[in-house]
């Protein structure tokens, strides 16, 4: 009788192995041991390549079903954090096929599509996820924010604004980046009143956020409040003097207001820091074009900007200005 017990145990093991390999693995490895523990620990320590390798080996073995879903998720995130999105993508695509009901995996894939500028593919996934009756509260923020960004990238500004609002309503704490994206969306639709209200609310939470200040200035400028716009940018530049894009915008807006000397001073600062930058050359040249005695220098700068390879539109705009100034010079001679 006693010799039957080991044989019975062996028979049970063979039967379990045959019926359910993944559960057999769990049985043999012990019910208390998480097979992903070591790999996840590597991931948590920031050893992403090692974690990805280990997880790849684990998924190739007989992991329990739930663990495999988690393994794929961690593996994809490890690849992304290790700077290998090209490996994360097929991992997630396979995982979503194997686990079509996993919202976490679908969201991860949609985000990766977005980050890889595959916006149409991201949209398809987000649209499908939004069709679900209840994707789960824990995913709502991620879903709304991801959908909003994807729609905004593709040009569906009205829809994007709606999803941004949902995302902002879901989030208990103030999120500057999300607010900035939402306000940008409103600005692109030229909804100046809504944008101004939103930016005021955001600035109340983060009064020194440079991007918010820049947005606020753009809203003022496009809504026709140019003086307010240049004042706001002056304040922003006191906080972030290295922001050449903001300084160039200010220079150009000062040109529009007819304040050419001030515009030239602003543009000169950027030009001194980046003398080969086509936009710096163009903005300075534009200001100088209206300052008597500075036309020659303006033409030199326009000539330089016209040779830009990386900024084709600025180059064309520079060439046109150069033509105009040259014609004027010729007409003065005659």
């Amino acid at each position: 009788m006693s010799c039957l017990k080991p044989k019975a145990a062996l028979l049970c093991a063979v039967l379990i192995l045959g019926a359910c390999p993944s559960r057999a693995g769990w049985l043999f490895f012990g019910s208390n041991k998480d097979p992903l523990e070591h790999a996840v620990a590597s991931y948590d320590r920031g050893e992403y390549s090692a974690a990805a390798r280990e997880l790849q080996e684990l998924v190739n073995k007989s992991l329990p079903y739930d663990h495999k879903e988690e393994a794929y998720w961690y593996m994809s995130q490890a690849y992304i954090k290790a700077g290998k999105p090209d490996r994360a993508l097929p991992t997630l695509q396979l995982a979503v096929e194997l686990y079509p009901k996993s919202i976490r995996l679908q969201l991860a894939l949609a985000e990766l599509y977005y980050d890889s500028a595959l916006y149409s593919q991201a949209k398809t996934l987000y649209d499908a996820l939004n069709e679900l009756q209840s994707p789960g509260d824990e995913y709502l923020l991620q879903l709304n924010a991801g959908t909003a960004r994807t729609y905004a990238a593709l040009g569906y500004l009205e829809r994007a604004a709606g999803y941004y609002r949902k995302a902002l309503d879901t989030k208990p704490q103030f999120d500057a980046m999300l607010s900035i994206e939402y306000i940008s969306c409103l600005l692109k639709q030229r909804k100046y009143i809504d944008a101004a209200t939103a930016v005021e609310t955001a600035l109340a939470q983060a009064p020194e956020n440079i991007e918010l200040l820049y947005l606020s200035a753009k809203i003022s400028y496009e809504a026709g409040r140019k003086e307010k716009a240049v004042t706001t940018l002056k304040y922003a530049l006191e906080k972030a003097p290295e922001r050449h894009d903001i300084r160039l915008s200010r220079a150009l807006w000062l040109c529009s207001l007819g304040r050419y000397q001030q515009a030239a001073q602003e543009a000169e600062k950027v030009y001194n820091a980046e003398p080969n930058q086509a936009q710096a050359q163009w903005a300075l040249a534009l200001a100088l074009s209206r300052i008597p005695g500075s036309e020659r220098r303006a033409m030199e700068l326009f000539r330089a900007a016209a040779n830009s390879i990386t900024s084709p539109f600025t180059a064309q705009a520079a060439e046109r200005m150069l033509e105009r100034l040259s014609k004027r010079q010729d007409s003065l001679k005659h």
Partner: peptide, 20 residues
């Protein structure tokens, strides 16, 4: 403590001229 200026390009001139 300064962070580098974000990259910018044609859009600064284009957006300005579009407003004009």
């Amino acid at each position: 403590a300064d962070s580098p200026s974000p990259l910018y390009g044609d859009e600064i001139v284009r957006d300005f001229l579009w407003s004009e």
